[in-house]
Write a protein that binds this DNA or RNA. Structure first.
Lengths: 187, 187
DNA sequence: AGAGCGATGTGCAAATTTCGCACATCGCTT
DNA sequence: AAGCGATGTGCGAAATTTGCACATCGCTCT
């Protein structure tokens, strides 16, 4: 049950991702890099795409789950942004090898989870209609994803610390405000 | 053929070696630390002792083989000493859990190899009697091991850079001198 | 002195993982 | 049209990992 080989595949993949864009990376290169059989790759992953989403999922998981409470949501964002920064080349290579639609679809699914857990952590939320809650989540989620994609697209130049810290609190304040308004409207 | 599990065992072992002396480390701790079955440990290693020598061999190998020529012998020593320094706690825990005899026996086997490859790299050596060569090797080997054990025993305080660089050139000079004398005596 | 406990090794069969080889397909180059 | 390299798939064999049972040892507690 200890998938060290799988982990090695991931590491080789990330290593290669720091050298070249996703679509220049071949299965053979990966298996050669960590010295395993080609079929062993296919045993663990259906695809290079599957490997990619696995890697991103794992990293997001790792970065996010460190900070579960809403209070440290900012920390979560900052950690994620710093991870992106420290793997700048890799992030960029992924960014440039994936269609905008696909990227946004993916980021949306992440942001969806984040926003949900955030909203659930806010007091007023449980008194707000499900429908309204979903609306609010959807709205801010889009904002979040838009920010992220443009930040990456512009070369991740802006300082994440300040940018996100401001945005984080702004976000939380706005969301609870929106929830309150939703609540009032309901009453 | 890609022993990632074996590597994981080694890593866990080194991690533990930075926390506690060798004889406080148990097989169960190791396998728990890297989340594998206890028998898997025994599949790869006969023993914790076997694991220890494997680890040391591997590290020595890694440190030494980077520099194969005699010219960079000093570099090899310095690299080894720096490795010892950066794993100070681990080295100390090993040092304190192993009998002096055993430690010296082990260091001797390493020094043996080092001295041999060093002597083979020196011009005059091939004209010297095998017996004399072995004598010279034995002599300097003992010096080397004595230095190493006392350096460790005294807490690895002395700066390796200066100490070893001086000792390294002194060693090489002396050895080729000794070989020349051996040669003259023969003629 | 003897029971209880946890760690050590060993043996073995079953389950999982890795490998090697063969094959069909696809896209690209010549 | 043939050649080439990469992709997936389908096995069976080999290697690795696991779970369980057992014997032993040293230690503690009473």
């Amino acid at each position: 049950m200890a998938q060290f080989t799988k982990r090695a595949i991931v590491e080789s993949f990330i290593r290669l991702l720091n050298e070249k864009p996703l679509d220049k990376i071949t299965v053979k290169e990966i298996v050669d890099d960590c010295g395993i059989n080609r079929n062993t790759f296919y045993y663990h992953f259906e695809d290079i795409r599957a490997l990619l989403t696995f890697v991103i999922d794992a990293e997001v998981e790792r970065v996010i789950t460190k900070h579960e409470s809403v209070a440290s949501l900012e920390e979560g964002f900052i950690a994620a942004a710093n991870f992106a920064l420290s793997n700048k080349k890799a992030v960029y290579h992924i960014y440039n090898s994936v269609s905008r639609e696909e990227l946004e679809r993916y980021l949306n699914s992440i942001a969806e989870d984040v926003m949900h857990s955030m909203v659930e952590g806010i007091e007023e939320s449980k008194d707000v209609e499900l429908e309204d809650r979903e609306l609010i989540i959807h709205f801010y989620k889009s904002g979040l994803v838009g920010m992220a994609t443009s930040w990456i697209g512009e070369g991740m130049k802006a300082e994440p610390e300040r940018l996100i810290r401001r945005m984080g609190s702004l976000l939380e304040g706005s969301v609870s405000e929106a929830l309150k308004r939703g609540l009032k409207r309901k009453i």
